[in-house]
Amino acid sequence: MPKIKMPKSSPSLDMTPMVDLAFLLVTFFMLTAQFRGEEPVIVDIPASQKEIPIPDRDIMTITIDSADRVFFNIDNKAVRANLLKKMGEKYNVSFTEEQTKTFSLMNSFGVPMNNLAEFISANEGGREKMNKQTKGIPVDSANAATNQLRDWIIFGRLASAEFHRDKGEANVSKLRFAIKGDARANYEIINAILKTFQRTDINVNQFNLLTDLEGKVTAE
């Protein structure tokens, strides 16, 4: 019996170009990706036409969410560890080695000093819960004793200056100050923060307000 030969068409495609492209894209996105730690709150920053990008290093960021709560962040692990030590001394809170390490790897936080140790030791879920409940870092522009943001700024600046001094750099005051405010936050709290920065014992008058880029408009 004659065999009927069915034409065997292979169902497989040559996927090589597609795979090449896919890996090219993967490589591109992997190399361009910037990993940031999770922010405790979602902040909807206002738009502006300013095009200057924000620097990555030597920056202290004060975040204000839509409920007027204040969060603090400073970059650099070494600076953070030193800052926590200084704050602990000031407020008579002792932090363990483990806590200091955790803190130095953390991102923004917005808890008062008396809750900070608990916040650091908490697991992710616990921190999330505390972030929801917290009222933010206490800011009181009139009363220095209850203005904890003032201490964070003073010691943060000191820790940053020490870091640069230890590296033998001539210019130690490289730290810049950024305000990342939600567009819906009340100006009252922003003003209190600006006033805190402008106190005679801090004397910072230049700020970077974080904004999102929007279309350019010019006057005709």
């Binding site: 990008p53 924000i54 008058n205 230049q206 700020f207 307000l209 904004t211």
Partner: peptide
């Protein structure tokens, strides 16, 4: 989109 910055100097 990296956030941009608006630099302001407050009067003393």
């Amino acid at each position: 989109s990296k956030p941009t910055t608006m630099e302001i100097t407050m009067p003393v």
